[in-house]
Structure formats: C-alpha cells, structure tokens
Computed example of a mutant assay.
Amino acid sequence: MAIRLFIDGAAGTTGLEIRERLQGRSEFELILLDDAQRKDEAARREALHAADIAILCLPDEAAKEAVKLAEGSGTRIIDASSAHRVAEGWTYGFPELIGHDRIANARLVSNPGCYPTGFLALVAPLVRAGLLPADFPYTVNAVSGYSGGGNALIETFEADPDIAYQAYGIYMDHKHLPEMRKYASLLHSPVFSPAVVPAFRGMVVDIPLPLAAMVAAPADQLRACIMDFYASHEVINAWPETGRRKHQRIARSMAPFDGMHLWVSTNQDGTQARLMAMLDNLGKGASGAAIQNLNIMCGLPETTGLRL
C-alpha cells in the first residue's frame, strides 16, 4: 500500500523540487490541494490528518500553524522551515550526524538549514573528536545561489543582471546560528558572514582556522577525521586533499545535486587551514535532505530519488 504524502507549501521552490524528486515513485501517493484550497485552513487540516507523512515547505509561522492543525493525528512531519530546528521534541534531520535510527523512529523531524548543513558537517565531528575546541570564536564565510532567498530574492536577481554579490545578515543575528551552535556543541555562536551570488543554486561554506593561534590538531588529522567520519556515508564525500577544482566553485548552470563535498586545505607550514563544503542549497540544503529523511522514515534506501 502506498504511503500517503502531503506537501504543505508544494507551490514554493522547496516544495516544487521535492515533487520533482518524487516523480515516478510508486511508494508514495501524493495528497494534492488545488490553488483554491492551498490556503484554506479546513482543507489543509484534512490533508494533514489524512497523510501518513507531511512535509512542510512553509515560512516559519505557517509551519507552526501546520503543526497545530495536525494535532490529534498520527501524521509524521518533516519540517523544511527553521521553526523547529532547536525545538524540544523534534529530531534534527541530519542523519550523518544525528544517526539514521533516530530519524527512522521519529515522528517530528526538522530539516537542517542550508548553511548549517555545510558548517556542521565539518565542525561537529571535529569538536566531538576533541580535535577542535568547543570554545573557539569560529567564523564562517559562505556564499549561496539566490534561490535560497525565496521568490522575492529570485525576482530581484533575475530582474537585475548587474548584481554580482549581495551580503546579508550583517547584524549577525541570522536564524541559522542557534542550530549551528547547538549541534556543533559550541560555547559561542560563530561569526557568520553569508552572501548571495548571481547563480540560481549552489553553496560554498568556508571556515578559516588560524591553527597556530588556537588549541587544535594539525590539519592532516582534521582531514583524516573528516574522511573517516563520512567513509560509510553515500551522500557526503570527503576529499583527501583540497578536492577537485569543480568542487570549489558555484556554476551558473549547476544541475540539481543532493550530495555534499568536503575538504580541508592548509598552507605550507600548517599554521592555517580552511574547512570547506560545497553543496546545493536546494539539494542537501533543502529538498534533497527532505527526501533523504523521508526515505529513512519510510524504511527505504536513503538515496532513492536523490541526484548524486
């Protein structure tokens, strides 16, 4: 019997990409609402209660509302918003870090943010292993394709081809910071410097480490730890040196990609290092992560339907 699936917010960028990854998959029966029903509370409540699993592709407040509408049902929920990423009772949907079993057995799963996916993939294993300190004032330099900003930013960039770079989060109160701190077990929030570039999708997260000025393991040990940590995982690839050149860039023509590439680079004398991640903000950073979690929750191979 097919698993009944409702995507609340299916008309948005994340929802549309999730539907694309579900095309041709007979394991799921989609519960669909027409344009007149999408914002109708009664119709949404009915769909949420009828589903076995619901994926929320909504703004934060609307996602909280959807969870309330689902109360009293046994529906399992994957929330792609940032509303529940550090909330009590929710499982953080990063299987490589949190564990597949916890996600498989969870009723409420919150997708990680796109930038935190790259940051945590690099920093969390190293802090756990004691190779990086939990009390260091980390900085994160990151750029993303403009699709991560939703329809308004998409329209801005596509209407003005002269934009080459747009910094944001300049007051350093970005909504991603709580999950970055919590799941990396850090004592301080990192200084996060995100920006948008004129590519539709793609993301590079770059964490500079002044190794000579901090209590940390040498770069080769950091690299070895990252490679060993992800050796058995299919979605994340850790490279032995600085990675291939194509993994260090965002291409304007980048195809949808649900994996992630990691690497550690260092200067000649080993006094400095950079931890870097490349992913698709709409893939492992959003829709691909939702499909990976959906597969795990349904007892299916986790890479089914993913573009790797």
Rank of each mutant, 00 (worst) to 15 (best):
D35T: 07
E17A: 14
L222R: 12
G285I: 03
M1D: 10
Q166I: 07
F157M: 06
D8G: 00
A106E: 11
R107F: 00
E158K: 09
N293Q: 02
S189H: 04
E302G: 05
A273N: 13
L186Y: 09
A104H: 13
D269E: 11
G113R: 12
E29I: 03
E61L: 11
D173H: 11
T75Y: 00
A36K: 04
D8E: 10
E29G: 10
Y115P: 10
V143A: 11
L294D: 07
Y138P: 13
D79Q: 02
I154L: 00
E41Y: 00
G118N: 11
W239C: 01
F6I: 00
T271F: 08
L120P: 00
G113L: 03
S81E: 07
A231N: 07
H100Y: 07
Y92F: 15
P59Q: 04
E88V: 04
H188R: 13
I250H: 07
W263K: 02
L97T: 06
D258E: 05
A63C: 01
M180G: 09
I154G: 00
S82Q: 03
G89E: 04
L209I: 14
G12R: 04
L69M: 14
N293M: 05
D280T: 01
L186M: 10
W239G: 01
K175V: 11
R76N: 03
F200V: 07
D34T: 04
G283L: 10
A104C: 09
N151T: 13
V235F: 05
P178F: 01
A195H: 11
L56C: 08
L294E: 10
F229L: 01
F119N: 03
G243C: 02
E65L: 01
P210W: 10
F136E: 13
V109Y: 08
T13I: 12
R25K: 05
V191P: 00
L186F: 08
A42S: 14
D173V: 03
P116N: 06
S185E: 14
V204N: 09
A134C: 05
L187E: 15
A104I: 02
V67M: 14
M260I: 12
G130Q: 10
V140N: 13
A42F: 05
G270M: 10
T266D: 09
A121F: 04
V235Y: 06
Q272H: 15
E29K: 11
H100T: 13
K39T: 11
A43F: 03
K175A: 13
W239F: 11
N141V: 12
G93M: 13
E46G: 08
G283S: 14
L222M: 03
D101T: 10
L122N: 15
I3E: 06
L211K: 08
H100Q: 13
L132Q: 09
G259F: 10
L294P: 12
A54I: 06
A124P: 12
W263F: 15
T117W: 12
E65V: 01
G299C: 05
